[in-house]
Each structure stands twice: as C-alpha cells, then as structure tokens.
C-alpha cells in the first residue's frame, strides 16, 4: 500500500528508521513468542519419537485428553447459548441496567483464575454453602468433573458475548425488522436472518472460548483435587508430570496443547482474513 510507496520514495534516514523498527519488533516476536513455542516441541522430542508416543499413550494421558474434551464439550455450548441470548437482549432492546449487565459479563476477565476456582470451592466444597447438603445426597462437585466444568464455564463465559455484542450493535436491527414486517415468526427471523448474519463472529467466539476452555489451568487446578485419571485435565497433567521431573511426558502433553493453540491461531487468522467484515470491530480482550 502507501507504506511501500512511501518507503521507496522517502529519504534514506527515514528508511533506516523503518528497518530498525521492523528488526526490533521481529527480534522481540521471535525471542519472546516463537522461542517458547519451539521449546515445547524440542523438549517433547528430546529423547526421540518413541518416548514421545509412549508418553502420550499412557492411560493417564488418554484420560486427561478425554476429560479435557468432555469439559469443553459441555462448557462451550452453554456459553454459546448464553452469549447469543445476552447479545440479543443487550443489542436489540432498551432496559434499565443494561450497562451493568455488560459489565457483569466482562467480570470473569478481571478475576484471577485461582479466585474463579476458589468461589466454587466456597460454594460447593465441604465447608461451602451447599457442601453439607450435597454431601448428604451423595453429590460430588468439587474434586469431581462438575466442578471442573463450572470453573471452566466461569472463566470462558465472556468470550462469545464479547464477540457478538459489538457486531450486532453495528449491524443494527433493520434486517430483523424487515423480516418481521414480511411476516416471519420469531424463530424464522432468528434462524433465517440473525444467525446467518452472525455466524462467523459466533464461530470466532467459539474458537476463542474453546481454546481457553481446553487450556484453562488456574481455575480447574483449584477445584480438581488432582486425582490422576479422574479429575486431571491436560494442563493439570502437564503440571503433575513436570513437578515429578517427567519432562518428556510433560512436554509431550504440552505439545498437544500447543498444537491446539496453533490450530486455533490458524483458524482465527483464516476467519479474520476471509470474513473480516463479518466479524467486525470485535472488542479485543480474548484472554
């Protein structure tokens, strides 16, 4: 674009500045972002492919993978429905307390992951509000799968809503009004007009939500109890192996998570590149 034209025509001191700035930025990106990523894979394969595969095939590893998928499969759709409902209410209607609702949706972003887990321990743990009652009825939430799911829902709650609200605000409600005037019922309007208009932003939000849900560490670590094979998700398995000096095993699981991250980045870039205007001015803040 014009930057290229400019850099060709401007005087050499300015071009030098460009080159220096680019070099500085790239050195930082490589040293600070790329190198840690590379470390994960190098450490995972430090002793070759066989130990790597061995580490992944262990039953603890497989159950951690299954548990991680299970948690994401429950948490992400729930937050998807919530995100759509919240965005619909906020962008299509006027009501008192709207700004407050928006602020509450963002709340989990400013709460430490550890605190996010802690609140559920205080609610459902042995000494919590509902602890004794749950105990009497034989229901386990903390140190069990439901706790992991709840903590994950908490930390990933804002993603879809945050993605949809600015887009739906920008799109306005004219098309939906047109659908109504043309005789569409509520659901017809939603599935034929609203949903197609937000599908890519929705996918984008789900992608970020899923990445966080599968990778969450702090919050699930508090509610998990670290029972191997039962309540350890992949990030927790990474921690446990690392603390037991099983570096190859830790990095092997970590490499799977890193692949997930790379896949997320690739899909995210693809969405931004292909459907940039349909994702629109999305609020930055995907943790």
């Amino acid at each position: 674009m014009s930057a290229v034209m400019r850099s060709r025509t401007v005087a050499w001191p300015r071009r030098l500045v460009h080159v220096v700035l680019i070099a500085l930025a790239l050195v930082f990106l490589v040293l600070f972002l790329l190198l840690p990523l590379a470390t994960v894979f190098v450490e995972a394969f430090r002793q070759g492919v066989a130990p790597y595969l061995e580490a992944i095939k262990q039953p603890e590893a497989l159950s951690a993978i299954k548990l991680t998928l299970l948690v994401a499969v429950i948490a992400v759709p729930l937050n998807l429905v919530f995100g759509v409902a919240a965005a619909w209410a906020i962008t299509r209607f006027e009501f008192p307390g709207k700004a407050l609702l928006g602020a509450f949706i963002d709340l989990p972003f400013s709460v430490s992951p550890v605190v996010s887990g802690l609140v559920y321990v205080l609610l459902f743990g042995a000494q919590g509000w509902f602890g004794p009652w749950l105990d009497d009825h034989g229901i386990k939430i903390i140190f069990a799968v439901p706790g992991l799911v709840l903590a994950t829902i908490f930390v990933t709650l804002p993603f879809v809503a945050r993605e949809l609200i600015p887009l739906m605000q920008a799109q306005g409600s004219e098309e939906e009004e047109a659908a109504r005037v043309l005789g569409a019922s509520g659901w017809q309007m939603f599935f034929r007009v609203t949903l197609p208009n937000i599908r890519w932003a929705l996918l984008y939000g789900v992608l970020l939500c899923n990445a966080r849900a599968m990778g969450e560490f702090g919050a699930v670590s508090v509610v998990s109890g670290h029972i191997r094979g039962l309540t350890t998700t992949m990030p927790l398995e990474v921690e446990m192996r690392y603390n037991e000096y099983e570096y190859v095993g830790a990095f092997a699981i970590a490499s799977l998570l890193a692949l997930l991250a790379l896949l997320t980045l690739a899909l995210k870039s693809l969405l931004e590149w292909r459907y940039g205007d349909e994702i629109a001015a999305h609020a930055p803040g995907g943790h």
């Binding site: 972002l33 990523l37 998570l257």
Partner: peptide, 13 residues
C-alpha cells in the same frame, strides 16, 4: 500466541 497457548504450557516453556 499467548492468548491461545495454555498458561501451563507457557509456564513450563
């Protein structure tokens, strides 16, 4: 990348 990479992975790396 820091958004997408799970924190535990970033930590050990």
């Amino acid at each position: 990348l820091p958004f997408a990479l799970p924190t535990a992975v970033a930590g050990i790396a």
